[in-house]
Amino acid sequence: MKILVCAKFVPDTDHLIIKESEGGKAVIGDLSEYRMNRFDEFAVEEAVRIKEQSGGVIVDVLTVGPEPSKDVLRRAMGMGADNGIHLAVRGEQYLSPMVVAAGIADYAREKDYNLILTGAMSEDMMNGQVGPMVASFSGLPCATQVILLRLSSGRRNDQSEENPDASSDWVAVYVEREIEGGNREMLEIDLPAVIAVQTGINEPRYPSLSNLLRANKQEIETIALGGDNSVLKAPEDLVSTIVPPKMRAGRHVEGSAAEKAEQLLLILHDKALIK
């Protein structure tokens, strides 16, 4: 059983400094703090759990991005992934999900992955496109917003004899995907498949020191995104960014903490929201 996890290196949104230039354009300040996309941590964790629960599972983790993106592979290997693959791009240009997905599908071709996992979306671009697009390019079934995942054996017609290796016996995956109103859709999907997992599917672990030491020594496979025939042009572009308009009054209460608290209580009292 081989699992491919796709993980992205993203700027930490909490520490993102934005300046507003003339005309309302947003200028993003120093992007010094990067981390593994939180949504992808759940995908890595899910793969590592499958590996721990059964023998004969190999977990590859792949990222697409500029050189520093490799950090995300080290972290995933620190969490227990076996190998890291870096599809390298130069510079900081806009990376279209379509180009990223085509690159991943290209890499995965003929590598016989049984399961490809991604997070629900990235924290920076918030698209959630790469998973379904990889599935489309690879001709695989796909489910998104998956909150529960169980590998199931049996049911495939061409499998007649019992296989002693548990992991190679898996032919399908049972998933529950979140839909509106707090409900869940229950599906059984044949492997190989692409599954985009939702946050809360598990509790991602911290990397272990011994794994991190191993990861630091281990070679990371680096390939240029799209290889030699990088003909796929981004079908869309991010032209500019703006600071979002305020939807409400947005009055900032200033002063010391105590002064702010007093003012807030006064406002709530005037509005008859507190006695």
Partner: peptide, 22 residues
């Protein structure tokens, strides 16, 4: 929503069409 986010990107990939989400 849970439907469009699920099928739209794959449909775009099949058409080679740009996909803009949300």
């Amino acid at each position: 929503n849970s439907q469009g986010m699920d099928y739209a990107p794959a449909l775009a990939a099949r058409f080679g069409a740009a996909c803009i989400s949300g």
